[in-house]
Computed example of a mutant assay.
Amino acid sequence: MKISPLQIGNLEIKVPIIQGGMGIGVSLSRLAAAVAEEGGMGIISGAQIGFREPDFLTNSKEANIRALKKEIKKARELSPNGVIGLNLMVAMNNYREMVDAAVESGIDAIISGAGLPTSLPKLVKGSNTKIAPIVSSGKAARLMCKLWDERYSYVPDFIVVEGPKAGGHLGFHLEDILEGKESSLEDILKDVIEIAKQYEKKYQVKIPVIAAGGIYTGKDIGKFLKLGASGVQMGTRFIGTEECDADIKYKESFVKCSKEDIQIIKSPVGLPGRAIKNQFIEKVTNEKEKVDKCFGCLRKCDPNNTIYCISRALINAVEGNVDEGVLFTGSNGYRIDKIVTVKELMQELIREVADYE
């Protein structure tokens, strides 16, 4: 299969791969820049990005904004001509301020999920920043396009369609995932492409639709490109790279884990998630953990009732304290068997797509 660049407005991504945003701290400037240098779109995760700042515990809001600007600047220095994007969760308490900081820093694109980014066009108005919602159904895609069209006379610059095999928080009901009743990425992608076509016709623009969730090999990429996707988003696969910003113990957890170690968990914010089973997951499944410090990171989280602090669990994991943290993963995380460079991984994926028929 011949690979065509992913064109998002005036942005050209030579290899149609978007590296998924992984927080807290799993995909920062080093990983994002490495992917961008190989022709993909590198993504920085904005989730609690300031966790290494000295005043994070006492002033997390300002620490996050400061760190975000630093990471975008570092990524630009490492990849001056690459395409760098940002993943921001709508559920964050400081969402608006983080968008402002990213736009001010000249970020190329913002991808938003964990809620519907209803006000995003207004927040990036007047900038060159491209914006995309993450959707898990045709219904959500139709709602976002209709809302942005009616409120702002704007349509998404691209749409990321995340299926049920993704890592992290999932946009599906827990019962549906456990019972296997959720729609497949293939079916959701087809629905979203049809909705995008309606608005492409109205606005006379191309709205690339990006497939995400469980995509692991070049063969997977080829399959979804053949189904009509303009590109793919891959997160978990990039954890197994030298440039991934997480601690080596975090990466080694993926190399060591088996298919049976990956399970669906209940997040403190009420969403199902997919993670590697470990001591921490077993402990909080049976008993509520005391939350001594609330970071005020997510709007829907109540520190008095939450089963554990998601920020602390994710920070523990990325810093290498893997037995006391949460390691989110896509369904294929167990297939990572070694740590390679981003260059090696991208070249392997490109070869596999080229061989796909």
Rank of each mutant, 00 (worst) to 15 (best):
residue 84 I to N: 03
residue 86 L to V: 02
residue 84 I to M: 04
residue 59 N to K: 09
residue 39 G to C: 09
residue 53 E to P: 00
residue 66 R to A: 09
residue 74 K to P: 07
residue 82 G to P: 06
residue 45 S to T: 14
residue 44 I to R: 00
residue 51 F to S: 00
residue 70 K to G: 06
residue 68 L to C: 09
residue 71 E to M: 10
residue 70 K to S: 10
residue 67 A to H: 10
residue 69 K to H: 10
residue 58 T to P: 14
residue 71 E to D: 10
residue 41 M to T: 06
residue 57 L to Y: 04
residue 82 G to N: 12
residue 61 K to W: 08
residue 49 I to K: 01
residue 83 V to T: 14
residue 58 T to Q: 04
residue 74 K to A: 07
residue 80 P to K: 07
residue 60 S to W: 06
residue 49 I to V: 07
residue 46 G to R: 00
residue 89 M to R: 11
residue 75 A to K: 01
residue 41 M to A: 12
residue 78 L to M: 13
residue 81 N to Y: 09
residue 89 M to D: 02
residue 63 A to C: 08
residue 75 A to W: 09
residue 83 V to M: 02
residue 91 A to R: 08
residue 73 K to H: 02
residue 89 M to Y: 08
residue 81 N to G: 01
residue 45 S to F: 09
residue 77 E to I: 10
residue 66 R to P: 00
residue 37 E to Q: 07
residue 46 G to N: 12
residue 40 G to W: 12
residue 71 E to V: 14
residue 45 S to P: 15
residue 42 G to Y: 15
residue 67 A to C: 15
residue 49 I to M: 04
residue 68 L to K: 07
residue 90 V to F: 11
residue 89 M to L: 15
residue 57 L to H: 08
residue 85 G to M: 06
residue 48 Q to C: 11
residue 74 K to G: 00
residue 64 N to V: 01
residue 66 R to V: 02
residue 80 P to M: 05
residue 41 M to C: 07
residue 89 M to F: 11
residue 46 G to F: 09
residue 40 G to D: 09
residue 65 I to N: 15
residue 91 A to E: 12
residue 87 N to A: 03
residue 77 E to A: 05
residue 74 K to F: 05
residue 89 M to V: 12
residue 78 L to P: 15
residue 40 G to I: 03
residue 60 S to D: 01
residue 90 V to S: 03
residue 37 E to W: 01
residue 55 D to Y: 03
residue 79 S to P: 05
residue 84 I to W: 01
residue 74 K to T: 04
residue 73 K to C: 05
residue 91 A to F: 15
residue 39 G to Q: 13
residue 67 A to W: 07
residue 52 R to E: 09
residue 88 L to H: 04
residue 77 E to D: 13
residue 79 S to D: 08
residue 88 L to V: 13
residue 77 E to Y: 06
residue 62 E to M: 04
residue 68 L to G: 01
residue 90 V to M: 12
residue 64 N to T: 02
residue 58 T to I: 02
residue 51 F to G: 01
residue 57 L to V: 14
residue 40 G to Y: 12
residue 72 I to F: 03
residue 38 E to T: 06
residue 76 R to N: 08
residue 38 E to M: 12
residue 81 N to P: 01
residue 60 S to P: 15
residue 87 N to P: 06
residue 47 A to E: 14
residue 59 N to R: 05
residue 84 I to Q: 00
residue 84 I to C: 02
residue 47 A to F: 15
residue 71 E to W: 07
residue 39 G to E: 15
residue 75 A to M: 02
residue 86 L to T: 02
residue 73 K to D: 03
residue 69 K to D: 11
residue 60 S to L: 12
residue 87 N to V: 05
residue 82 G to T: 05
residue 66 R to Y: 09
residue 85 G to K: 01
residue 41 M to Y: 08
residue 81 N to F: 10
residue 71 E to Y: 09
residue 62 E to T: 14
residue 89 M to E: 05
residue 75 A to G: 10
residue 62 E to F: 04
residue 47 A to N: 11
residue 38 E to D: 14
residue 56 F to I: 07
residue 46 G to E: 03
residue 49 I to H: 01
residue 39 G to P: 15
residue 57 L to I: 14
residue 58 T to H: 04
residue 51 F to Q: 03
residue 39 G to L: 07
residue 51 F to E: 00
residue 60 S to M: 10
residue 74 K to I: 09
residue 79 S to Y: 07
residue 91 A to L: 14
residue 61 K to H: 13
residue 84 I to T: 10
residue 40 G to A: 11
residue 54 P to I: 09
residue 56 F to H: 02
residue 77 E to T: 12
